[in-house]
Design a protein around this nucleic acid. Structure first.
Lengths: 128, 128
DNA sequence: AATACAATACTACATTTGTAGTCATCATTT
DNA sequence: AAATGATGACTACAAATGTAGTATTGTATT
């Protein structure tokens, strides 16, 4: 289903985040938003936007003189695609080995662990 | 502690995998190993090895005429570093949100879910 | 209408990555 | 010793990425 999502570079991802947070947005809005957390020049951001459009990850509405941009894939879709390829690259494709590592490290609070347990329990029940 | 691990590209990662699987190895051994699963030319693999050495991710023993190569970081360290930056990039830094997504998708078998539950349970007991 | 401003379009350039090739050298085989 | 073959050193080149700059053009202002 999810047609092959083109790869999104690190900087481009930040632009996507802004658009996922609310779209459509004008280039200027994106620029303002990103200048709060990065020190990229406006032109840089504009270039990133253009590249995302070329890659067909972002759409443009050119009806007005000032274009507006919007994501063509949901954040969820993109996260899953990235995660998929990441896991394949780094963990040889097995999701579990990664999860185990994360659980073993102290990246999770007690509460989070609890939540995860609950989710896992539910998941298991529902699946059968 | 873990000094900043340089970033390892996708192809380079495959070379690392071979070295983690057993080192030291000569370039030739690495090449043979990789030719089973890729169609890279020997020179390509050699270049990747050299770049890893430059990046200080792989060490070389030049005592013999034919060098041997070995990883300077454990697979675990590198996985954690990559995962860290990946999660920051894609999930805004929260480990849990990613785990939840993975659990929700059907990436896990029943058995795996069980294992995870066990691990979580143990983890929680031990922590307090 | 002329000018200034802002948005878009196009161009630029260094670095990293993927993917090798050529040249020099040392060891081994005639 | 000369030729051959394997290693290592250095070079190459296109695509992707990070990071902009210049040129053009439509809109708003005087």
């Amino acid at each position: 289903m999810t047609d092959r999502i083109p790869s999104i570079s690190e900087s481009e991802w930040e632009v996507m985040t802004v658009l996922w947070h609310g779209a459509p947005k004008t280039a200027n809005e994106v620029i303002l938003s990103l200048q709060e957390c990065t020190d990229w020049k406006p032109k840089t951001i504009r270039t990133l936007l253009d590249r995302l459009v070329q890659k067909n990850v972002v759409g443009v509405n050119k009806n007005q003189r000032i274009y507006t941009f919007f994501p063509l894939y949901s954040q969820d879709e993109c996260q899953q695609a990235e995660a998929q390829s990441f896991i394949k690259r780094i963990y040889g494709g097995t999701v579990k080995s990664m999860l185990v590592q994360f659980i073993q490290e102290d990246s999770l609070s007690d509460e989070e662990i609890n939540e995860l347990r609950t989710i896992l329990a539910k998941k298991q029940k529902k699946d059968e």
